[in-house]
């Protein structure tokens, strides 16, 4: 008589997987929000002081208390958090004090600027890393392998900001090939900037940012390709008379593609970290720079909003990576 158990229809595996992962993403966002809120509260910054800026000297204690009460700073921290969370769930992330605009709007604009930088760098770094890894793994221990490995280790060991500054010194200052800063020439209105000028300003930051992704991608792909080149199916291809390049392109690249995609999406967090540095060095008006500004000038709503947006982006990246693994591998298809 187990009617309830029998009546419940089984969810398709992919849908159940998706639901599980979305629940996990929501929990992740909640904990990131709580942690970021706690950190902002613990920071030795008086939000009222930060809001007033230089005008702080002219404001008396009674007015300060009024401002604090207006913003709810007189209430205990958990109550403040719940109030912020409730508003955030309704889509209201608050007002950014340093940009004097709604946080959602600031993040939207800044994110678009960051995306023009991050998307090309992400794709370029991924493609370049995969190609290099494939070339290196096809013949383990050959000279391309050794050269590419050295290059990848070198890249992995170099700090991103140092590399960005090096690029700036060589290509912008010494050679004068590329502009040294910003997303557009200074003193121009957005409508006046040509596409050529935009691209010229994009080259160095994209180069600096994509170079960061090349190293790990090349090393991971190399390991996967080398493993596939030793596998039985590769031996069989050789036994059929296939040449090394054919085995690498037809078999090994196929087996390395999925882990590479997963790394590409899972690496979105690192990309974001790299973009904070690159945007700072190249004075790019993106989200990363806004995060640093918000931190230095105690713009708590903006900082929380950026933390949430970043966590959402990285979480979605990981979700996509897992979904790809689920969907692309035929061995995973049609199995519970």
């Amino acid at each position: 008589m187990n009617v309830a158990g029998a009546a419940r229809p089984a969810l398709p595996p992919l849908l159940a997987f998706l639901l599980r992962r979305l629940l996990r993403l929501a929990l992740l966002l909640l904990s990131v929000a709580a942690l970021a809120f706690a950190l902002a509260r613990a920071a030795p910054v008086d939000p009222v002081e930060a809001f007033l800026g230089p005008a702080a000297a002219t404001v008396g204690p009674a007015q300060r208390a009024a401002i604090a009460a207006h913003w709810g700073f007189d209430q205990p921290a958990p109550a403040q958090f719940l109030r912020w969370l409730g508003q955030a769930l309704r889509g209201d992330l608050g007002e950014s004090s340093i940009y004097a605009a709604p946080v959602a709007q600031v993040i939207g604009e800044r994110f678009a600027a960051s995306l023009t930088l991050m998307l090309p760098a992400w794709l370029l770094g991924g493609a370049l890393g995969f190609g290099l890894g494939l070339a290196a793994g096809a013949r383990e221990g050959g000279w391309p392998d050794r050269a590419i490995r050295l290059y990848a280790y070198l890249l992995a060991a170099l700090p991103g900001f140092w590399l960005a500054m090096l690029l700036l010194i060589v290509f912008a200052v010494w050679l004068g090939w590329a502009p040294a800063c910003c997303a557009a020439p200074p003193g121009l209105l957005p409508e006046q900037v040509s596409l050529g000028q935009r691209l010229a300003h994009l080259t160095l930051p994209v180069a600096a940012l994509s170079v960061l992704g090349v190293g790990p991608m090349a090393l991971h792909t190399r390991a996967k390709v080398a493993e596939a080149m030793r596998a039985d199916f590769a031996l069989y291809a050789f036994a059929q008379g296939a040449r090394r390049a054919e085995v690498a392109l037809r078999h090994a690249a196929r087996h390395a593609a999925l882990p590479a995609l997963a790394i590409l999406f899972a690496g979105m967090g690192e990309l974001f970290g790299g973009s904070v540095v690159a945007e700072q060095v190249f004075a790019w008006p993106g989200l990363g720079r806004a995060a640093i500004e918000a931190g230095l000038r105690a713009d708590v709503p903006l900082l929380l909003g950026i933390a949430l947006a970043t966590a959402l982006l990285v979480g979605c990246g990981n979700l996509v990576a897992d979904l790809l693994a689920e969907a692309v591998d035929p061995r995973q298809r049609g199995q519970a």
Partner: peptide
Amino acid sequence: ALVPQSIAWLDPLV
């Protein structure tokens, strides 16, 4: 020509 010893010698993704 080789007739290999197990199904694992076929490429599982093709």
